[in-house]
Write a protein that binds this DNA or RNA. Sequence first.
DNA 1: AGTTTAAGTTCAGATATTCTAAAGCTATGC
DNA 2: GCATAGCTTTAGAATATCTGAACTTAAACT
Lengths: 304, 304
Amino acid sequence: MRTQNLETLQRIARLGSFSLAAEEANMTLSSVSMQMKALEEELGAELFDRASRPPRLTPLGRRVAEQAGNVLHEDQVLRELCSIGEGLAGTFRLGVISSYATRLIPKFLQMAPMNAPGAEFDVSTGLSSDLSASVLSGRLDAAVVTRAGREDPLLRFDTMGRDPMVLALPKGARGETLRQLADELRFLHFQPLSGIGRVIADTLAKHKIDVRRARIFDSIETTMECVNIGIGFTLLPEPDVKRYAAADVKILQPKIGRVEREVALVTRIEPSAERWRGALLDMLATTERLAQGEQKRTAAGMDD
Amino acid sequence: MRTQNLETLQRIARLGSFSLAAEEANMTLSSVSMQMKALEEELGAELFDRASRPPRLTPLGRRVAEQAGNVLHEDQVLRELCSIGEGLAGTFRLGVISSYATRLIPKFLQMAPMNAPGAEFDVSTGLSSDLSASVLSGRLDAAVVTRAGREDPLLRFDTMGRDPMVLALPKGARGETLRQLADELRFLHFQPLSGIGRVIADTLAKHKIDVRRARIFDSIETTMECVNIGIGFTLLPEPDVKRYAAADVKILQPKIGRVEREVALVTRIEPSAERWRGALLDMLATTERLAQGEQKRTAAGMDD
DNA sequence: AGTTTAAGTTCAGATATTCTAAAGCTATGC
DNA sequence: GCATAGCTTTAGAATATCTGAACTTAAACT
């Protein structure tokens, strides 16, 4: 089936004759005639009654011309998908680290239809290392991960932002440095296989801090809840700590220098990704900005 | 645009590689490759990332493959319209004489989706002569009309049924023959330009009956309402008289012999009409049978 | 790390399709 | 009945598409 033939059929139905259709489409009359002959042959149906001089559409031909409109409409939608110059067009399989998902995904999905009407997003969550591996193997197109250590040279990491890591201490804790606190309290260690966990483990190792009796959690919310009720202290990104900390939890910058987790968009290095990587980064940045603004407003509201 | 290319794209998206798609479709691998190259060219879009060896769909390619499904689905609908062997397929522009419309159209439109799922009907009403002219000129595909006198040789009339014409007399009328009644009462003459009107006029002329003070109406319901309240008598098809007559109205066979109106389906004589004329006649006959059954049941119900 | 294999791409030629222009029909209108 | 407009047909040219073979290369396997 060739869509041009359906267009010609529609034109004939609209204009009432082969010759007017030919004129409008800048084709020869014989082309029009041959196209319709081919269409009838392919469909195995009589679309025209050729006994009368402008050939008359049969009832079936009339209906087929109508249905041709549906086919052509879907075809048009397809072409418009492809002619979105700027902006995102396509179905993107996007991964987001669990520790960032809460902050990003709801707002992102809410904004997506406005920011990128030509795009669909299949979002999934996981650990930085798994997500990076999925991007590398092609199961995902892109992922938001925490940067850490060695990075595959086939992948590209575009930093989206840096969150300072802060200490969250339960009410009554006395120490002020990581080392002091590690002696005094149980350390709540975020899953070392995750990006944040790697940052934490690297920091502890670098300063040779021994956290005896550490507990491992793989949920930020759970970890903070444990801090809230005094089970131990932890080291986590500031925005997450502020989101979940109870009013009496003490928040400190670690004295051992700035500790950060760096959040990045990871994509494969390949020519076709150049078309959309920038737009996706823009969109994520916009979302982040809006989400942070909202969080601040919420926090402000809570102060009242 | 060629739908085959979209099918190939879908196959690749489903099977994951060009070669599997080629195998499934019994094509050579190079055909598949060339089709996809042509599709990308036509759409002006990169659908595949050819750096990796089964070429990977880009996000846009994934979305296009999905939308291709919509195009192909509409195409399939179109083909199925054409492959309805028996039965009606198409959009039929159908005329029905006003004096028959009440009896036929509601039931007909109600049954249509079941009886002829592949058909649509644009129904209009009018006089037999106008409807026949419309069929002849192609504004209608077929019409249900009253047969009368000379018929165009380019048209074909298939009789659907015959309604005996009966006299309807108001309460207290004394005459028993048309002639007696014409002397006694005002004659309510149905629109002589219509089919029924022609039958009436022909009958009166044939028997040289003079209906002084006749009144002309172009609605059966109005005519019968006038009989009901004693304004005059009339001669109309039995089913219509029975439908609208008040309980005290007297109904008589005319003594001058059987007077009938013959209802027929009129269509152009042309090869393509052969495909559907029979099916349409069947459908109308079925509808009529059901409608009559219903009318009888209603009448029986009223007797209770 | 080098080799093999499988999977795509490209090319040249064969085949099929579609177009144009001209000639041929035939309803329709005068 | 004749003229004309409108469609069909035909032949040949221009395109497009397919096949099979040679070529390339990513991924898998020593």
